[in-house]
Amino acid sequence: MNATKAGLRLGVIDGDGIGPEVVAATRAVVDEAIGAAGSAPVEWVPLLIGHDAIAAYGNPLPEQTLVALEDLDAWILGPHDNASYPSDMRVAPGGTIRKRLELYANIRPAAAFTGVRAMAPEIDLVIVRENSEGFYADRNMFAGSGEFRPTEDVAMAVAVITRQACERIAHQALRLARGRRKHVTVVHKANVLPMTTGLFRDVCYEVAAQYPDVTVDDEHVDAMAALLVRAPERFDVIVTENLFGDILSDLAGELSGSLGLAASLNCSDTRAMAQAVHGAAPGLAGHNRANPAALQLSSAMLLRWLAVRDNDRILHDAADRVTRAVTATLAAGIATADLGGLASTSEFTEQVRARVHRR
């Protein structure tokens, strides 16, 4: 149970590559913000995935980790490098965790930061990506991967779109829009895939009838990609299926400045996982050069999700402190090398920690 008076109990998973560095930097900032907000210290529950888990258990995503996560409401996940796992262990831990624990919503904001050069400085939107099915073969089947080869020269994949999944992701997007600029854009490809993405579009409109204060429109995914480049300021909340959401959110992240700043939250109605959009960057591991900002901003999303769920003003304050501190640090021209700055991972983190206490 998460209880502010008794202290939050959060899972923490280092992952691979730069994971241990950015996770440690994120823990430090969360601890600082929680203390500054007046809460008891966080109880961190360390768990293993990736190469550390292979060394300990012979499995990059051991059952022990999944069982432990089922006892937690929230956790931070570092990046993983499943491409470097042994060939018989190429599981993607993040996707498996999302499927096992039914984290059906992937919420990815994209907004430009003062002090960071952005291709689209006016961008300020959130992509709400359906996380459990669609065209991603690892998540759309009860058993099996969803991909198959009837002959040596033919490969096929199955896409799954269900009314239940469309309804719940539409509610997520529409509720989020109510707290922003009250505009949702449904992204689909119903002109070519009318039964699958057409169902997604139609169900989103059906759910939208329950939110008369929110304006809802729709775009084809190819047109949406062009419009994000041409006029990103037109959009507030974008809701779409799994594959489309993955692609569009990476595009939006680059338009807003860098994937090194791209935060995300994976959640259900009862659990949430903070996970930066970027990968493990194994070439940077151990050099104190990684950018921790995306995971720090993801942790702020996690704290805010808990604050909303539990109606907890202290956690709202802690989330705001993390977001403001990272934003102010970047605005002061302090950044890691990927953003053209000179700060190391630890130096950037110390600057953020100092600003956590500022109003």
Rank of each mutant, 00 (worst) to 15 (best):
residue 248 L to C: 05
residue 249 S to K: 07
residue 190 A to D: 02
residue 230 R to P: 05
residue 238 I to L: 04
residue 225 A to I: 03
residue 269 D to Q: 12
residue 271 R to A: 11
residue 217 D to A: 03
residue 183 H to L: 08
residue 202 D to N: 13
residue 279 G to A: 13
residue 216 V to G: 07
residue 196 T to G: 15
residue 288 N to D: 15
residue 225 A to N: 13
residue 187 V to F: 01
residue 259 L to W: 12
residue 288 N to F: 03
residue 213 D to C: 13
residue 203 V to G: 01
residue 247 I to E: 00
residue 215 T to I: 08
residue 238 I to E: 00
residue 283 G to W: 06
residue 189 K to C: 02
residue 244 F to W: 04
residue 225 A to K: 10
residue 204 C to G: 07
residue 205 Y to V: 02
residue 274 A to Y: 08
residue 279 G to K: 12
residue 268 S to M: 11
residue 257 G to A: 08
residue 220 H to Q: 05
residue 232 P to E: 12
residue 187 V to C: 02
residue 234 R to K: 09
residue 264 S to I: 05
residue 198 G to K: 06
residue 243 L to R: 02
residue 290 A to C: 11
residue 240 T to H: 04
residue 211 Y to C: 03
residue 195 M to K: 10
residue 242 N to Y: 03
residue 290 A to P: 01
residue 195 M to T: 13
residue 212 P to F: 12
residue 183 H to R: 15
residue 191 N to R: 13
residue 225 A to H: 06
residue 259 L to A: 11
residue 247 I to F: 04
residue 184 V to H: 01
residue 183 H to G: 10
residue 271 R to E: 05
residue 205 Y to L: 04
residue 274 A to P: 06
residue 216 V to L: 03
residue 201 R to W: 02
residue 219 E to G: 01
residue 206 E to W: 04
residue 227 L to D: 09
residue 257 G to F: 04
residue 182 K to L: 08
residue 261 L to V: 11
residue 251 L to A: 10
residue 222 D to Q: 14
residue 218 D to Y: 01
residue 181 R to C: 11
residue 243 L to T: 04
residue 260 G to P: 05
residue 252 A to W: 04
residue 200 F to E: 03
residue 279 G to V: 08
residue 244 F to M: 05
residue 282 P to W: 02
residue 257 G to R: 00
residue 281 A to L: 04
residue 264 S to Y: 03
residue 234 R to N: 11
residue 228 L to E: 13
residue 238 I to R: 00
residue 219 E to D: 10
residue 265 L to W: 01
residue 251 L to C: 05
residue 230 R to N: 14
residue 284 L to H: 14
residue 193 L to E: 00
residue 192 V to A: 14
residue 251 L to D: 09
residue 258 S to Y: 07
residue 242 N to P: 02
residue 184 V to E: 03
residue 278 H to A: 12
